[in-house]
Design a protein around this nucleic acid. Sequence first.
DNA 1: CGTCACACGTGAACC
DNA 2: TGGTTCACGTGTGAC
Lengths: 240, 240
Amino acid sequence: MENIDEEYRHFLENNVFPQNQELNSWGLDEAFSGYYDSSSPDGAASSKNIVSERNRRKKLNERLFALRAVVPNISKMDKASIVKDAIEYIEHLQEQQKNIEAEIMELESGMPNSINQNYDFDQELPVLLRSKKKRPDQLYDSVTSTNSPIELLELRVTYMGENTIVVSMTCSKRTDTMVKLCEVFESLNLKIITANITCFSGKLLKTVFIQAKKEDKDLLQIKIQTAIAALNDPLSPMSI
Amino acid sequence: MENIDEEYRHFLENNVFPQNQELNSWGLDEAFSGYYDSSSPDGAASSKNIVSERNRRKKLNERLFALRAVVPNISKMDKASIVKDAIEYIEHLQEQQKNIEAEIMELESGMPNSINQNYDFDQELPVLLRSKKKRPDQLYDSVTSTNSPIELLELRVTYMGENTIVVSMTCSKRTDTMVKLCEVFESLNLKIITANITCFSGKLLKTVFIQAKKEDKDLLQIKIQTAIAALNDPLSPMSI
DNA sequence: CGTCACACGTGAACC
DNA sequence: TGGTTCACGTGTGAC
């Protein structure tokens, strides 16, 4: 009774799951069909449970995959790490939102706090936010001090219709960030319709129009994130 | 909502810890009890793998539980649903943050500008991707650094007053042209105020605002041309 | 009765 | 070379 399962299992492993571990770590497998069991209701009493269970697993993996697509800073591809990064990112967003709201209050309350630009030789921090010195508990955006990694502040990938996907991303302006950003996109071999990089006040905004299909949106985002992460740190950071 | 207790009741029955603490579902057993089958006749068999696997599962469940804790509105207690709600929440936060940031910009610059409200109401997006399995043959291609020189079509360097020099240049769009162009400007160690690259219809237009004095204009232009020429052909000291 | 969601042990694959 | 991570099938309890 077991050898049937063994056969089927090896079939799945060898056919559906030959993937290399980078990019798309766990199987978005699909297209299992045709296998059918019509005998021995007691022995193969599963036969419906196992496919259901398989679907459940696949659904959770898809969701987890999509979760990773939404979180900009990903450290590792582990399931646990993905959830961990998502938690940190949510906390970071919540705190940042509070700060921003406080700042909006402050701005609205009427101080004509004009722009006092003092050009120092050092990195110019953006005029808005991030000047708050909170507790050092949240070390979200103080990533590992390799030479100068790309600090991805935002990444949006949206389908625009007409087989056009727009990638819009914001980074901190650091040395060689522009070069690295261009390298990332050059390495992906995309069909770039038009591209644009703008640098202002310590930030760097890049917009790329890419010819691609709608269903490639999430995969494209993952590719970009993976390329940036790989460029930032070829080794893998810590995990608990 | 009340069936939460019923939901995780069966987790507690297996995973130790008579915790009276509320809201601690999913067997967050901190108690380490490495007991397994003591009567296993097969000797080692797994013995270490199964406890490791158990820890891995526990860790993922903890993280998933923590993820649920930071997402305010959770519909169901399913693992998949938790991840789904987290994704929606993150997207919501991102969009909200973007709007708020735009508002801050608007408030700061003093220019009353219309807010483009973009209400995105995707109630259920299964985020399925790669429904078809394609042959990932040409994936993971190397960068193939094809050595294509920068074809400079135009270069204008003008002094704008206020110690600002504007560089505007046009090139043909080739592979790695963007990267090389960025590299050129990074290598010159200029005080770049703001920069912009736009790519359209086979051409590439770059505009850079540089903080420099009026008398540096010509020297700057020479430097840019020299750098491009040197990058195109490192051997010959190129003509202008 | 079936369905759903879960934890579990296990073999395999990758460092 | 283990240590990790994963998918898989199965048993179980709740609805």
